[in-house]
Amino acid sequence: MTTETSTSDIAEKDRSTGDPSGPGPIGPTSGGPLTLSLGLAAMVALGATLVLGLTLPATVEQGDYSRLIAIHPGVAWASYIAFGMTALASVLWLWPRTRSGHWDRVAGASAEIGVVFTALTLATGSIWGRATWGVWWVWDARLTLSALMLALYLGYLALRRVPASPDVRARRSAVTALLAVTVVPLNHFAVTWWRTLHQGRSMAQIDPGNDLDGAFIGAMLLGLLAMTLVYAWLLAQRVRVARLEDEAEEATLAQAIVERRREAAVV
């Protein structure tokens, strides 16, 4: 996900002076062309989803709220990808051969974005539910599991904020992420297993003769694509910021050590 190729002036200067007492090299501080194009693609896809979603016909049963199909499945899907990515990055961190701070940062960044998307899923779902079911919330298996998923990952993010050495924190977080991710497939298939109030999986319903109309399927698929792109772009940005945070912390520490040494030399 780190696609940055450009290097910042500061980092260049530090490397060129080669001063061992100066702060360590700092990586690129802005996104590269790949991140930029990813962002542009996400913007275009979002715009197209918006246009297509708003031009969908209002249905008889649900009125204007049926247009939420352009957004709601997309954000739910993005939250699944995000939590899947957290689990994958956690496995890669735990695997000794691929262990690096990078995967820990990817796991944390992805979980943060996943929590935002889960909250958006619950919010858009509630709005739709109020209009269609007449209530903001029902204790349906999928809704309950989505809320549970949000709580689990809020706990994960809280655990990540506990001060500890990077290795300790990464190991704890990775174990927790692997425990938490089990709820994702459970959530996805909940509508099939428990025959819930929430309708079945949309993707499994795409077949001829189904009441899910072509325009709606198109809007939904475009929504999925748009949210996936938005997720990927956010992840690239968040991982970069996380890396800069880590590097800034190291640089500050190195700077402090240098200063203390200088003080010692004066005395």
Partner: peptide, 14 residues
């Protein structure tokens, strides 16, 4: 240091 508050948040949803 925050284990008293962290544990319920982790354990109860799980």
């Amino acid at each position: 240091r925050v284990r008293e508050t962290l544990l319920p948040l982790l354990l109860l949803p799980a």
